[in-house]
């Protein structure tokens, strides 16, 4: 493989990452080819020693997603971490998907339910006292507050659970390319 093709395949694999990160990574590998040439090695030799560019790109992408998730725990960083995880897209992860997707779906559904309980708690709190709530207005206010705080508690619990799930995915992803993938493609 020539230098141009290596860089092209690397870039293709990095698509979707921030521009400046891609530029930095590509510059690293360009520098490697320059240093190799100064060392008297051919482009093909250097490319062969570097290894498969698509696989390197997958590892770099996954690491970047992992770092984002580590530095900022937000829904969007969780989502991009999950995408980077899916990007590893190889057999063991495809096998895992039927397990992972329902879990993500259930967590999402629970979030929606918690939000609904919170909103209806607010409704009971505000509208209950004026609409003949069984037990009187004080009961309506307390019931409303109770529903809202239960929703907040359940939401916090769900948050912890989803952080745990994403962490577990990241752990598996690292395990994947450190142990499982080298074991599958021991030759490249």
């Amino acid at each position: 493989m020539k230098r141009n093709e290596f860089i092209k395949r690397l870039k293709a694999g990095l698509k979707g990452m921030p521009q400046e990160d891609i530029a930095e990574i590509v510059a690293d590998y360009e520098e490697h080819f320059d240093a190799g040439a100064a060392d008297g090695r051919s482009e093909e030799e250097v490319a062969a020693a570097l290894g498969n560019p698509s696989r390197l790109a997958r590892e770099l992408r996954f690491e970047a997603g992992f770092r984002n998730w580590e530095s900022a725990r937000s829904p969007s960083s969780a989502w991009s971490a999950i995408l980077a995880f899916m990007g590893l897209a190889t057999i063991d992860i495809l096998i895992l998907l039927p397990v992972v997707l329902p879990v993500i779906g259930v967590v999402f559904g629970l979030f929606v339910a918690v939000l609904a309980i919170f909103v209806s708690g607010g409704f009971v709190l505000i509208a209950g006292p004026f609409s003949g709530f069984p037990g009187g207005w004080l009961v309506a206010i307390l019931a409303g507050l109770g529903m809202m705080s239960a929703a907040v508690a359940a939401g916090a619990l769900l948050m912890l659970i989803s952080i745990g799930i994403v962490n577990a995915l990241m752990w598996f992803g690292r395990l994947h390319y450190r142990v499982i993938e080298p074991a599958i493609h021991a030759e490249d």
Binding site: I25, Y29, E31, G51, L56, E59
Partner: peptide, 21 residues
């Protein structure tokens, strides 16, 4: 990185590209 990679590749015998991640 190139120097690190080539010294590692001699001693540890693995893909030089792994050094960048």
């Amino acid at each position: 990185a190139y120097e690190i990679a080539s010294r590692m590749a001699d001693a540890v015998d693995m893909g030089e590209g792994t050094i960048y991640p």
